[in-house]
Every structure is written in structure tokens, then in C-alpha cells.
Amino acid sequence: MKLFSRRESVLLISLLLVSGVLFLVLFLLRGEGDGEWDAVIRYRGDVIARLPLDTDCEYPFECEEGVNRIVIRDGAVFVESADCKNRVCVRHGALTPDAADVDFISCAPHRLLIVLERRGDE
């Protein structure tokens, strides 16, 4: 049995091209970081808190699934610690307004989502 057929290389190249185009779109969508921003914290899709990004604070998030310590410092939001297993949210690092349109912090086990929104939107 052949390891790799011609049809498979076509599939591979087209998939790489599609993801390349998507990366480009994502790059073009990156907005400006100016202005005033809020860190919007959503649990199961509902907004549970809206924290101004220009005020340092700590927000201990608790839900029946677990706990995440959300911290705002120097105009960025990050998750300091969490009691979930994969700790993807902690390893994500800080979320800043430069990447507000294309990035977010999520904790899938706790169904928690942190996004940045321009103040006054919504």
C-alpha cells in the first residue's frame, strides 16, 4: 500500500492553502488597539461581568464546574490560576486590545470565556 498518493498530496496542499488564506483574513481583521476597552466575562454564554481594562483588579470567578482567578493588570487581562485539568486558560497568557478582534481566553471545562470589547459597544 502506498504511503502517499497523488490525490492525497492535492488534498494536503489545498488544505494548507485554505488555512493560509484564513490566516491572512485573520491578520487583516486585526483591529486597532486604541480607545477604552472592557474585559467581558461570559459563563455559558451569558455576560456575568464587564471589567474596565484600565483599572487593575482581581476577579475570582467561581462556578459549579470550578474556579478561575481572573486578573486585570497594565491594560491586559489574564487568568492567574485555575483548578481545571488542562489549564489552557492560564497558559494562554495575557489578552490585550491589539488582538481583541481575533483572540479570546476560554476555559472549556468551566465554559468560561473572556473577550475584550470596546467600551460603549453593545
Binding site: S106, R111, V115
Partner: peptide, 27 residues
């Protein structure tokens, strides 16, 4: 699945990453 679970369509920005990593890992 993440869209209804996290309650936002924003996760679609992961699409290029996941498409690329899925392709390479599958390969």
C-alpha cells in the same frame, strides 16, 4: 460544539489554527 457550549461564535477565529493543526496531525 464550542459555539453553543461557550455561547459565542467568536471561537471561529481559531479556525485557521485548527485547520492547519488538524491537517498536519492527520498527516
Amino acid at each position: 460544539v464550542a459555539i453553543p457550549l461557550l455561547g459565542t461564535a467568536r471561537v471561529t477565529v481559531l479556525l485557521p489554527w485548527l485547520l492547519l493543526s488538524g491537517t498536519v496531525a492527520g498527516l
